[in-house]
Amino acid sequence: MHGPASPGWLLVALCAATGAYCLLRMRSAVEEQRRAAGGEALMGFGMAAMAVPTAVFTPPSWAWPAYAVVFGAAALRALWAARASAHHLHHLVGTAAMVYMAVVMAGAPAHAHAHEHGGAAPGPGVPLLTGALLLYFTGYVLLAGIRLLPAAGTSGGGALAWGDRPELARACRLSMGIGMLAMLLTM
């Protein structure tokens, strides 16, 4: 993504750590949780790869279409899985956002080069789809943050395995939502 290097590295670290935790969650005894964790691990690692600052590594021209294909396939899988669980609708929006960002980034190097040398900037304002995704993920982050607040009168039950801790899964999803917001803001 285009933007300063330090926040880019922080975003890479956040997304990679989230992806790694989601891999741990794939060891859960609950099949639905394993499936969701697999999709979230793909998102976390994909976001980390896309967030590497371009000053350090400029991906080859084929990388952005490859991201679009991978996340397009993940979007189709999320669409299929949404029949059984509404949570997969969020996965669908997330993977579609990744496809959108990959397509935009595929065309960005020529624009960035022209803009650096006095070329015309894109039209005023934020593109409609970017704005809609920003609104969606802002709402998602706020809602996910509220869900992390402990409910009154709840106490910790028995010890749960790392892959089965719902509060950590929610924190993982919140982190990815924040990462998605940061990536969309750099578009």
Rank of each mutant, 00 (worst) to 15 (best):
residue 71 F to D: 01
residue 33 Q to K: 10
residue 137 F to N: 02
residue 33 Q to F: 04
residue 80 W to P: 02
residue 61 S to R: 13
residue 13 A to Y: 10
residue 166 P to H: 02
residue 11 L to C: 06
residue 32 E to N: 07
residue 3 G to N: 08
residue 94 G to R: 09
residue 105 M to C: 11
residue 114 A to G: 04
residue 30 V to N: 11
residue 176 M to P: 03
residue 74 A to N: 05
residue 99 V to D: 00
residue 14 L to S: 08
residue 122 P to E: 04
residue 63 A to P: 08
residue 112 A to R: 14
residue 91 H to T: 09
residue 64 W to T: 02
residue 154 T to V: 08
residue 32 E to T: 11
residue 90 H to R: 13
residue 106 A to P: 05
residue 90 H to V: 15
residue 143 L to Q: 14
residue 65 P to E: 04
residue 87 H to G: 15
residue 132 A to I: 11
residue 38 G to E: 04
residue 176 M to T: 14
residue 129 L to R: 07
residue 95 T to W: 01
residue 17 A to T: 11
residue 67 Y to M: 03
residue 102 A to H: 05
residue 77 R to P: 03
residue 67 Y to V: 06
residue 146 I to N: 11
residue 55 A to R: 14
residue 144 A to Y: 02
residue 68 A to T: 02
residue 136 Y to M: 09
residue 18 T to E: 01
residue 39 G to N: 08
residue 91 H to W: 05
residue 101 M to R: 03
residue 29 A to L: 11
residue 142 L to S: 07
residue 69 V to E: 06
residue 98 M to R: 01
residue 127 P to Y: 02
residue 75 A to G: 07
residue 113 H to C: 09
residue 106 A to G: 13
residue 150 P to W: 04
residue 69 V to H: 12
residue 4 P to T: 12
residue 177 G to H: 03
residue 30 V to G: 04
residue 7 P to R: 07
residue 83 R to Q: 15
residue 95 T to R: 03
residue 166 P to N: 04
residue 21 Y to F: 11
residue 63 A to H: 09
residue 19 G to C: 05
residue 176 M to V: 08
residue 57 F to V: 09
residue 132 A to F: 10
residue 37 A to G: 05
residue 74 A to H: 04
residue 117 H to R: 06
residue 183 M to V: 05
residue 148 L to N: 05
residue 84 A to S: 14
residue 39 G to F: 08
residue 141 V to F: 00
residue 162 W to H: 10
residue 136 Y to A: 09
residue 31 E to S: 13
residue 151 A to N: 08
residue 75 A to I: 02
residue 89 L to M: 10
residue 168 L to G: 01
residue 69 V to D: 14
residue 16 A to Q: 11
residue 148 L to F: 06
residue 23 L to Q: 03
residue 15 C to Q: 04
residue 138 T to W: 08
residue 67 Y to G: 05
residue 121 A to S: 04
residue 13 A to L: 12
residue 51 A to Y: 08
residue 98 M to K: 00
residue 24 L to F: 08
residue 101 M to H: 03
residue 87 H to R: 13
residue 15 C to I: 05
residue 106 A to L: 07
residue 187 M to T: 15
residue 118 G to R: 06
residue 35 R to K: 14
residue 45 F to Q: 06
residue 32 E to K: 10
residue 66 A to E: 08
residue 88 H to K: 10
residue 151 A to W: 07
residue 149 L to Q: 09
residue 14 L to H: 07
residue 173 R to C: 10
residue 146 I to S: 14
residue 27 R to V: 10
residue 101 M to T: 04
residue 67 Y to W: 11
residue 9 W to R: 13
residue 104 V to D: 13
residue 186 T to H: 12
residue 114 A to F: 00
residue 128 L to P: 03
residue 155 S to G: 14
residue 107 G to Q: 06
residue 165 R to M: 14
residue 159 A to P: 07
residue 71 F to K: 01
